[in-house]
């Protein structure tokens, strides 16, 4: 039996059944394409072009993965970059976001609305790609650096606004008042009261940030030329683009032979599998904060 789903708070049995049925249907609709993606990545190219997509490949093959892992060194290096960027980026971003959200959530802070507006404004208006590029390369000199992969995404107005709303909702002013009367400083209150109380919000925002960093190839594509800083997503995106290029521009004999060998469809799906699987493995870690009964600490009340 699971921990704290208290008896008095449970759904009637019949409705529990109905909800489960609805969810099962939804899950089937959601998971079928995913299974298809995994299946195609293990199907041989020959049977793909002969028979089309199949849930159970008539001819299994690891060619797509062999092809993707051909340059193993670069994949390893890129995996380091991605893990580094995702870990440091998510932590850094969470810290900055939490601090700012807390300031904005303080109802007694005179400039909270000014700052909220200052923040919100960036959600709608932006200078566009070229001006950003000019600032990042010519003013901040961040081209081809590790930090260009982190800083531009480290403060998302959307995340701050969400977290601020969570904080306003779950932290009562009375608790903060009480702590202050007890002589706690602002930093102490933030670290010991605000952070523990906003765990579900932090987990939500943390998950969003993690996904953003993990999935990003755009910044790499724009700013990175050094192979040591090429992230996994960017590398896979390049690989995909190379495949497309060879497939559509076969004009030399060698290229033509190459093309016949590339498992184009399968590689596309294998790339997706490589990207998707770690995220799916990371999700349960965040998930525990989204399930009631496990997170409510003793601080409340």
């Amino acid at each position: 039996m699971e921990q704290t789903s208290s008896k008095f708070n449970q759904l009637p049995k019949s409705w529990n059944l109905v909800f489960n049925l609805i969810l099962i249907v939804l899950c089937v609709v959601c998971i079928i394409p995913i299974i298809l993606v995994y299946a195609i990545s293990f199907t041989s190219e020959a049977s793909l072009s002969a028979k089309g997509y199949q849930f159970l490949p008539s001819e299994w093959s690891l060619d797509a993965y062999r092809y993707v892992f051909r340059n193993g060194d670069q994949i390893l290096q890129s995996a380091y970059v991605t893990i580094g960027v995702t870990a440091i980026g998510t932590l850094f971003s969470l810290l900055v976001t939490a601090l700012f959200s807390y300031v904005l959530s303080r109802r007694d802070f005179r400039y909270r609305n000014v700052m909220a507006f200052f923040l919100f404004f960036t959600m709608l208006f932006n200078g566009g790609l070229v001006p950003s590029y000019i600032v990042n390369t010519n003013v901040l000199h961040l081209a081809d650096s590790f930090w260009i992969l982190i800083l531009p995404y480290s403060l998302s107005a959307f995340n701050v606004i969400i977290l601020r709303t969570f904080m306003q909702q779950s932290i009562e002013t009375a608790i903060l008042e009480a702590a202050r009367i007890d002589g706690a400083g602002e930093w102490y209150i933030f670290a010991r009261i605000v952070i523990p109380l906003s765990k579900p919000g932090l987990a939500t925002v943390g998950l969003f940030t993690l996904v953003t960093y993990w999935n990003d190839w755009f910044l790499g594509q724009l700013y990175i030329t050094n192979p040591k800083l090429v992230s996994l997503q960017y590398m896979l995106m390049k690989l995909q683009s190379n495949i497309d290029f060879v497939t559509s521009n076969a004009t030399s004999a060698t290229n033509n032979m190459l093309m016949a060998q590339i498992p184009a469809e399968g590689a596309r799906m294998a790339i997706l599998v490589i990207v998707l699987t770690p995220i799916l493995c990371a999700y349960p870690f965040f998930q525990k904060y989204f399930v009631k009964g496990l997170t409510i600490g003793g601080i409340k009340g």
């Binding site: 790609l129 070229v130 590029y133 010519n138 594509q221 390049k238 683009s241 290029f245």
Partner: peptide, 21 residues
């Protein structure tokens, strides 16, 4: 010599030319 595949080329080059890199 920086060789760029199609998508990279189309993403990077306009920005490089516009910013005077």
């Amino acid at each position: 010599i920086i060789t760029l595949n199609p998508t990279e080329f189309e993403a990077k080059i306009p920005a490089i030319l516009a910013s005077g890199q």
